[in-house]
Design a protein around this nucleic acid. Sequence first.
DNA 1: TCATCCGCTGTTTTT
DNA 2: CAGCGGATGA
Length: 782
Amino acid sequence: MKANYLDELNEQQRVAAEHINGPLMIVAGAGSGKTKVLTTRIAHLLRNGVDAFNILSLTFTNKAAREMKERVEKILGGTEARNLYIGTFHSVFARLLRAEAHRLGYPNDFTIYDSDDAKSVLKTIINEQNLDDKHYKPALVYNRISAAKNSLIGPEEYQHDYAIQQEDMRANRPLNGKLYDMYAKRCFKNGAMDFDDLLFKMYVLLKSFPEVLHKYQHKFKYIMIDEYQDTNPAQYEIIKLLGAAHENICVVGDDAQSIYSFRGATIQNILQFEKDYEDAKVVKLEQNYRSTKSILNVANEVIANNKGQIEKNLWTDNADGEKIKLVRTMTDNEEGKFVADTIAEQKLRNHYANRDFAILYRTNAQSRAFEENLRRKAIPYRIFGGLSFYQRKEIKDFIAYLRIVTNPQEEESLKRIINYPVRGIGKTTIDKVSVIANEQNITFWNVLERANEFGFKSGTLEAIENFVIMIRSFQAMLGKHNAYDIALQVGKSTNIVKELFNDKTTEGLARYENIQELLNSIKEFTETPTEDGELVESEKSLGTYLQQITLLTDADKGNDEDSDVVKLMTIHAAKGLEFPVVFSVGLEENLFPSGLSINSREELEEERRLFYVVITRAKSRLFLTYANSRYRFGQLVNNESSRFLEEMPEKYIDRSYAGGGNVNRSPINNGGGLFGGNGNNMFDRMQKKSPTAPQQPAGPRPAARPVPNAAPSNHVPSPNFTPDDPAIMEPGMEVEHQKFGFGTIQTLEGPMNNRIATVNFPKGGGEKKIMLNYARLMIVKK
DNA sequence: TCATCCGCTGTTTTT
DNA sequence: CAGCGGATGA
C-alpha cells in the first residue's frame, strides 16, 4: 500500500476518508472527487486493521463498480483488493441469493429475468386471463409491479392497499393486483426472479431468516453506498437491516444529481440520513476539480431553480474556460451534422482525440442523426446503451438453451426454443402443453418429459421426445464440463451455428458473428480466474455465467474504454463520467424536459437535475444544441427551445457559434457554411420556408415575439447574406435585413445579450425596432 | 405449421 | 420510421 495515500486529498476529502466507525454521509458535488475519497477510505480502513472481507461497497452501475475495484487495486495492490465485496446492488444481491435462494423455495440456480422476459411472462398471463393486452399492456402492468416491489409491497398487500386500488380503478385497470399475484406465482414456478426481485427477495430473506441476517451483518461490518440519492425504499431497508448491527454505514451522494425517481428512487433517503442516524457525521465535498468556472457557474445557477436542496457551494480553482456554446439548427439531421463537423474541427484546432468527445442525449432514439453524420465523416464512435447485446434475438435464443440446461422449470425460455430451430412443434402444440401444465399443476418441462401420457400425435410426440433427449444430453454435461464446452455443444447439436453460418444475407452474417461473440465471451468467462470463491463454490459454472450476463448492460460489454472513439449515450448513462468536450443535444421542450415530465413540479425538477448532470459532465468545453424541428413518429414536428436554456446566466453563454443564438456563422470559415456547405445559411432557408412559422427564429423563447408585423416588402436577400455579430454593430452602419432590405442603424439600446436596434429601412417600411437576438442583420457598410 | 405481408402503434430515462 | 403482432395464404 502506498504510504502517502492520504496526502493527495484536500481537507474535507481527508476528513471523510479518515472516518472509520459510525455513520457517515458524504455530500459530494459533481466532480468533487468522491470516488477518490471512497477508494482512499477503503485503503484507510484496511490500514487500520479492518479485514477486506468485512467491507461491502455498493454502486449502481457495473462500470462504477469496476472503476472502484481498479482504483482500490492501484492503492492496495491486487491481492488484498480481491477480497472486497464491490458490486452493484443487483449483482451483489444476486450473488448472495445464489447462496441462499433455496431458503425461499427457489433453486439456487434461479434464472434472472430481464424486463423483456418479465413482460413476456406478463403477456402470457394476461392472455391466459382472456384480458385484452391492448388495454392491460404488459409494459404498464410491469411498471406497476416494479414500483410495488421497489417499495416492498407484495401481491397481497398490493391488493389490499386502498390507495393503490384506487389508482388502478381510476386507470381502469382494476385487475393489476391480481395480475401481480399471478405473475409472482408464475415467476416462482419458473424458478425465476426479475430485477426487482433481486432487491425484494433479498429483503424478504433478511427479514424472514434472522440467522441469515446475522450472518451478513457480521460479514459486512463496513458498508459503503455510492449514489445514495438514487436508492429506492427496498435498497434503503436492506441497507438499514444489514448495517443495523454496526452502523458503519457510509453513504455518498449528491441530491442535485438524483435522476432515477422513475425507478423508485427517492431523494428522501439522502435528505433524511441525518435523521435516521442521529450521530451521523456529515462531510461536504465542495471543490470541483473537473470543470471550468464557466461550466460550473452555469450548472450552479441552473440547479438553483430547484427547491429543497442540501445547501452547498460548489466551486472550482480551475480556469474560466470558454463560454458555453449554444447552437440552434433547423432539423435534427443538421444538428447531427453540426456536431460531427464540430468534432472534426475541434480535433484539428485543439488537438483532441475522438475519445475526448461525448454526445449526450435525453432519449436513445436521438442517436441516429449523430451516427449517420459521424459515419459520413469517418469519425469512429460507439453507442452505449440502447439495445443491449444480450437483448438481441439470436443471443436471447441461444441463452434460452443455456437457461433451460441449468433450470428446466423455466417456461419462458422453453417456449422460446422449443421450435427454434424449426422442429415441427408449433403454436398449437405449445398451447396444448401450457394448458396441460396449468391443469395438472406441473411445469411445462414436466409435460414435455411425460409427453407420451397426453395423447400427442405421433409426429409431434416424436419431435418432443427428441427435444427432451437433446436437452437432457446437455444437462448431463453439467458439473463435468465448463460453460464454454456446454455452449459449444448446444451450438452444434441444435444446428444453430451451422444454420446461421449458411445464411449469407447481411443480417444472417451479423447474427452469426454475434453468436461467435457470445461464445467468445463465455470462453473468456471460463478462462478468467475467479475473484473470490468465498460465498459461492463454483464461480465458473454455467449458472453463474447466466446470472451475471443478465445484469450486464451494453455499456459494460468489453473493456475497450480506452479505444479512441466518440461516445454516444443518454445523460442517464453518462452519470459519473466526465469528458473534455460534451455535446448536450436536443435541448427542446417536450424532449428535454420530456413532455411527460412537465406537468408536475417534482418531475420537472428531476429533468432539471438531469440538465445539471449533463452540464457537469464537461471538463473544458460544452456545446448545447437544439433543433427547430425534428422527426418524431416519422413526422416532422416543430419544437420550442428548452426552458432550461433560459435559466442559464447570459454572461457565460456564447450564442455566436455557428448560427446559434445570434449569428449564423462559423468562427472558422466565416461563412456559415458549417452545415451542408451549400452557402445557403440556415436563417435564410428558414425565413423562406415559413416566414410566420410558429417556432421562434432563434434563441430561447423570448418574452415578446420580435417578428415585425406583416407587410413584408418583397426584398430578396443577397445571395451572400451572412448575419454579423450584433456586438460589432454601431449606429450609422448600413445593414441588410432579410425581409426589410437595406437600411441604416439609427440607435442601439439594451444589454449586449439582448440588443435592440432601431433601423431605418427606406424600402422596407421605414423605422423598425429589431431585436438582434432574433432577427439577423448583415453589415453592408461601416 | 410456416412464411410473408400489411397495418398499427408507440418514445423517456435503467439495473 | 421502425418493429411487432396479427392475419392470410400455401
